[in-house]
Every structure is written in structure tokens, then in C-alpha cells.
Write a protein that binds this DNA or RNA. Sequence first.
DNA 1: TGATAACCGAGACGGTACGTCCTGTCTTGAG
DNA 2: CTCAAGACAGGACGTACCGTCTCGGTTATCA
Lengths: 210, 210, 210, 210
Amino acid sequence: MAQKTAPDSTRRSERSRRAIYDAALALVGEVGYAKLTIEAIAARAGVGKQTIYRWWPSKGAVLLDAFLDLAEQAAEAASAGHDTVQTEIPDSGDLEADLKFVMRATVDEFNDPKYDAPYRALAAEGLLNPELGQEFVEKLLEPQLQLFVDRVRRAQDAGQVLPDVDPRIALELWSSPLAQRWLMRSGALTHAYADKLVEYALYGIARRPA
Amino acid sequence: MAQKTAPDSTRRSERSRRAIYDAALALVGEVGYAKLTIEAIAARAGVGKQTIYRWWPSKGAVLLDAFLDLAEQAAEAASAGHDTVQTEIPDSGDLEADLKFVMRATVDEFNDPKYDAPYRALAAEGLLNPELGQEFVEKLLEPQLQLFVDRVRRAQDAGQVLPDVDPRIALELWSSPLAQRWLMRSGALTHAYADKLVEYALYGIARRPA
Amino acid sequence: MAQKTAPDSTRRSERSRRAIYDAALALVGEVGYAKLTIEAIAARAGVGKQTIYRWWPSKGAVLLDAFLDLAEQAAEAASAGHDTVQTEIPDSGDLEADLKFVMRATVDEFNDPKYDAPYRALAAEGLLNPELGQEFVEKLLEPQLQLFVDRVRRAQDAGQVLPDVDPRIALELWSSPLAQRWLMRSGALTHAYADKLVEYALYGIARRPA
Amino acid sequence: MAQKTAPDSTRRSERSRRAIYDAALALVGEVGYAKLTIEAIAARAGVGKQTIYRWWPSKGAVLLDAFLDLAEQAAEAASAGHDTVQTEIPDSGDLEADLKFVMRATVDEFNDPKYDAPYRALAAEGLLNPELGQEFVEKLLEPQLQLFVDRVRRAQDAGQVLPDVDPRIALELWSSPLAQRWLMRSGALTHAYADKLVEYALYGIARRPA
DNA sequence: TGATAACCGAGACGGTACGTCCTGTCTTGAG
DNA sequence: CTCAAGACAGGACGTACCGTCTCGGTTATCA
């Protein structure tokens, strides 16, 4: 299991770790992921290159950890105050209203330039790099989707959703189109769009029999 | 429009163009997009690097054209014989059946290793590079989606789909989840999954009022 | 003897030839011989590259012909008016005076920036390229030196120079040091220096026996 | 003085430096200076190109240092044993004999193929590149000439040379012609030729008054 | 309370690829 | 046929980073 003489993480420099995160996030915003380099991160962070190579296998991994850290901090801030980051989905009893609320917030978040560059970069890297993609999905994507699973399941218990519907699949009807439009820039992300997705998914597009 | 004394495309070498496409597609399959280099494409194609730089601005653009060419050839082959590539959506009168048929074929196509590497690479590159992303969407994505738009609109005319539904949004309910699962490797792509997406989208997941 | 299908020199474009000479001489002055390129000469002359490759084997050969042409023009101008270019050595009966006169003129010529760049370039190229060096020596160097041979021989006939002295070697005593200093930039080129070379060479540096 | 964050010479790899010298000297002999490339030197030396660019500004500079190193090694070898390389001029009291001895040795050295290619290349490069030319003259040429200055001055002190003769100029009467003939290939380099140069320079070519 | 072992900043190193420039050949179309 | 124009295969340029490797210099346990 030991690969080289694994580094001793107890002696790790916290200050360096933070500086690397900050540098990575700043640089990916400034020059883009393609032109992001380990050397530039090290230089900006005032850190030796080896310190990065010691703890991460690739620039994608650095950025993922940096972004995870950023999300974590945002979540902590949100739990205290009332911030934009979604940590759970409201349950007012009205599934449609609750979903629309969350989807509109997600639209706003996707439009926030702070998250755009790194998130997009990680998604792109994840497409090509299965290991990193796996981690991206597990640590960022699935936790968000799981909130929808829970909410749908609660609606099922309340008899508002058909009992034989698979919530894990159902949620993709509204979450995937949104993500897709954002990633591919294949359409505008508006509240109206988010609303329609929810409506279509809940009630279907087929004419109901009279 | 031209910035650098644009090359004279009438004198372009068709032989080189073909060789570059072949080399690019072969290499992206062998070593992956990240390790795909212009130098290697040129070497494999028996072509000077300048010949690539003369006609394309980046490796992504080369690969996009190569893939477009591949798709075009496949489409031509399909129009003659009966091949897998979808050039239109059947209209049997039964929307659900027709959509399921196409979605199952799409699942099979996504699982075809021949298309996997280049298509995935182009998607990833498109996430980071807006120009290329735009072209990717316009030339590859939208034409496919437009087929759904047409089919849904025909169903609307036949009174099978609610008249106030926007077909361009509706189709995302089944096409985006499939694409997303494939790109993110966030779930298995099966015929059953495709079927469910179509059913949920057509009839909704909410319990119908009695 | 024919190498490829030798070009037909009767149909050669005189206008192109002149333009190439002008371009080559101008460019070698502007950017130096190392950065002088066939492409730049062709572009500046408004000529196709092939027109250069058809008539010359290398940039050195082009420059040599260009410089020869320049020298020829200068000689014609000198024969008419009374210009600086030496076409023969005066014979006043006083060898020392005549040599000093020519040497001083040569110093002035070496200090003329018009000749500096191309002449220096040709000399350098000649060091490395034996064929071109041979031509350089035959067409530029030796004709100049032959003038000294003639003058020294006449002095010998007049009993002013020792009869067993080889004029071809003797002239090197003053001409080579001057050329060497200029090429190597290993010392200043002044009239005083030229005078001393002539005096030392004529009368020797050893103390004469009483 | 430093322009780009100058490299730390204390950490320089001695092994690489030696390998680069060896490769440069070998290659200049094999393919000639015009076809000598930094890339080939790096490949032959088993060294990254950057390692060359880090320490030298041009291939000429590499070759100069390589040749200087070669000369230094030869000088060390000569100081121990009795080798061909001239480290000083003998003083037997007979100036003519001493000069002829050294000049004949120089002729032999010029005819040694080991020194021919690099020395000729450096001379040519020095003609075009003033910085390198300066270094070439200072480090290679002048030290050799200084030996003549010293010997002539000693002869002056002994009353064998005219007191008002400038030794620095006098030595050019025999050394420049030899160098010139060699560089320009404008004549054969023989012992007889060397002897004549010395004789003419010492005693002059003019008929002595009766 | 030293020693001694890590992490750390720094950056030289052997490499690979970049995107540009130029070479010398070949092809096209005008005169 | 020559010529201007310029596409082509090829190859070197000088730069930028890669990931590995020392090199001192702090820490930070352990003997």
C-alpha cells in the first residue's frame, strides 16, 4: 500500500496547504484551467514545487481539493448565517414550490463567476480522467443530488409522487438539463427555464386522457 | 476577417487533410486527449506541423473537424445501408415507442468505444474553450436535438403532447440525463434507464389526481 | 554536367536579378548575415523564392554576386570620376609613398559602413564554406593583391626591392595585418598604423649592422 | 547585471558541462559549424536543451568555452610533458631562429585537424558577432600574441631590434599573414613560407643602401 | 539537550511539446 | 518557359512546464 515512503501528514504545513489552495483558485480564474500550471501555483503560493507533488498527483487533484475546501468554508458560513449555498432542500409540503425554489437558487449559483471557472475545470477534467471524475462525482455531485433523492422520497411517502418512481432517476429530469445547459452553454439559465423543467418533470408533457 | 494573410484554401492538400483526421482520431483513442499532441498527429500523418497550424488553431479544433468528418461519413454510409447512426427519428404515431427506440440506440452509441474517446474529449474541451464549445454544440449537439424538436412538434400537432409545452426544453428531460450520466460516468447506461427517462418525461412523476 | 535541367539564362529576368541584389545588400545591413534569409530577400525583392533557388545555391552565393555587382558599379563610377575605389596602384617612383597612399585609402574603405556588413559576412561565410571561400578569394581578394604584386615587381625592376624577394609573400606583410585587425576588431585602423606597417615591411625591424 | 534571475552557478552540474563541451567539439568536427545545432549538442550530451540555454546565449558561446577548455587542458598537459602547444617563446638570444621555430610550430598546429574546425568556426562567428569576437580575441588571440610582444621587447633590450619599433604592430607582420592564409585558404602553409615571413619582417624587403 | 529526521523553499536537471521560422521542393496560374 | 505566389514535409529554434532530484534551512520529535 505504501508507494514511495508516504509523507508524514502530521508534519504537514497548514500554511502551505492554504496558500496552495488560494493560489490554485486565483490562477484558474485568471488564466483558465488549460494554462494553469503547477509551477505557477507553487510560485504564487511561495512554495516549492515538491511540496505540491508530495501531496497531490496532478493539478486537477489540487484544484479539486481547493474547491472542496472552498465549498466547505461556504457551507460553514451558510450554516451560521443564511447564505446562498444549499445544504438541504426545504420541505414545505409543496414539492413543486420547493423544487422551484432550489432550482432557482442553483441557477443563481451557476451564474456566480466565483464558482464558474474552477467548477467547470473540474467537470472537464473529470470527463477525461476517470479517477478524478469519480472523486468529483462522489464528493461534489452526488451529495447535492442526494438532497433531491431525500426530498422526492419524502414526497413519495406523502403520496404526492407515484410510488414506483425511482427518485435517483427522477431528479435527473430537472438537474441534468440545468447542468448540461450550463456546461455546454447551450442555452440561457433563467428562473423561468428552471420552473418549466420542474413542471414538465412533475406532470409530464403528454396530454392527459380526458 | 483574415488576420495573418489567410491561406489559400483552393490549394489545400486533400491528402494531408485526410491523413491528419485519421491520425488525430487514432491517437486520441490510443493515448487519450490529454496526451494527444500536435507533433504526434503531424508525425503519424506524415505531415509538417505547419500544415496543421496553417488550418487549425488548436488540437481541439483538429479533433472536432476530424470527428465531424467521421460523423459525416457514417451518415453517408447510413443513408445507403441501414446503419446505427441516427439521421432522423421514426414516426410510427406512437411517441413513447419512437422515443424509446431512439434513446436505446443512443445508449448503444454512447457505449461504442469508437466514438467514446473523441466525443468525450470534445465535450471536455468545449467546457473550457467557449469558441470550440459553441462549434461543438452547433455542429454536433443541436442537429441531434433538433430531431427531437421536430418529432415532439409532430406529436403536438397530433394532439399527443400538451400544446403549451416547449419542445426544445422538453427534449432535455430525457436527452440531458443520458448525456450527463455518460459524461460523468455517474450511472450505468442501460435500455431500462432510457425507457424510464422517456416514461417519466412523458407522463410525469407526480401522482395524477384521481 | 547538367544537374537538373539547367535553367535557360537567356530568358532570365534582369529586373528580378537587380531587385534580389538590392534586397540582399539592404537586408544584410539591416539584420545581419546570420538573420538574413532567402525568404526575406524574395519578399523584399518582390520575387518568388524559386527564382532565387533557380540561380543561386545559397544565401552566401547571392550575397557574393550582389557584392561583386556593387564593387563593379563602384569601379565604373571610379573610372569615370575620381572615386575612392582602388583600381590600380600609383607609381610615382617612390614605393613607400605609393604604398602608404593605397593603404590609407584602404583604411578609409574598411571604415565605410556601406561595405562593412556584406564584406564581413562574405569573409565569415568563406571561412566555413570552402567553395564560397575560394570564389571570394579569387574574385575579390586576389585581384586586389595582384595590384600590389605588380607594383612591387616594378620596384624590384627599378632596383628598389631586393631581387630575391617574393612579391606575393611580401605584400602580405602589410595587407594581412590590416585585414586581420579589421575582421577581428583587434585594434584601431588608422593612417598612422598603415604607415608603420609599410615602413616596417620595407626596412625591417632589426637593427642594421653599423 | 543579471537580467532574468540569473542561475545559481554553485549548483551547476559539472558532469553536464563536460558532456556539453565534448559533444560540441565532436559535432563541429563531424557536421561543421553551420549544421551544428543546440538540439544535437544536447542530444549527444544526454542533456536537456534548457541546460545549455541556461548557461550560454548561443552555440558560438558554447563552442568558445569548449575550445577554451580544450586549450586549457592541452596547456596543462604541455606544462607537465613537452607537448606541441606553445605556452611561451624560447629565448636563445637569436631572435630569427626563435621566431622561425615558433612559426613552424604554429604552421603545424594550424594543419592539425583537431583544432581546425572549432577554431575556424569561432573565427567566423567572431567576424559577425562582436561580443563573441571580443571574447575570442581576448581569450585566445591576444594571449598568444602577447608572447611575441614579450620576445620582441627582450630583443629590443638586447639591441637586436630598432628601439622605436612598436612590438605589438611588428608581430603582426608575421602572425597575421599566417592566420590570413589559413583562414582564407589563400595559400599553402609551409615551413618555408613561415621562414620567409620572419626574414622579410626582420630585415625588410627594400634594398639596403650600399 | 542535542541528534536526527521529516518537511520546506528553491531551483537545476533530463525531457517533451509548444508554436514560429525557415529550408528547399513542388504546384498553380498568369504572361 | 519564366515568373510571383505560396502550400508542403521537414527540422531547428528558443520557451514553458513536466516530474525528479539535490541543496541548505528550519522545525519537532526522540535518545
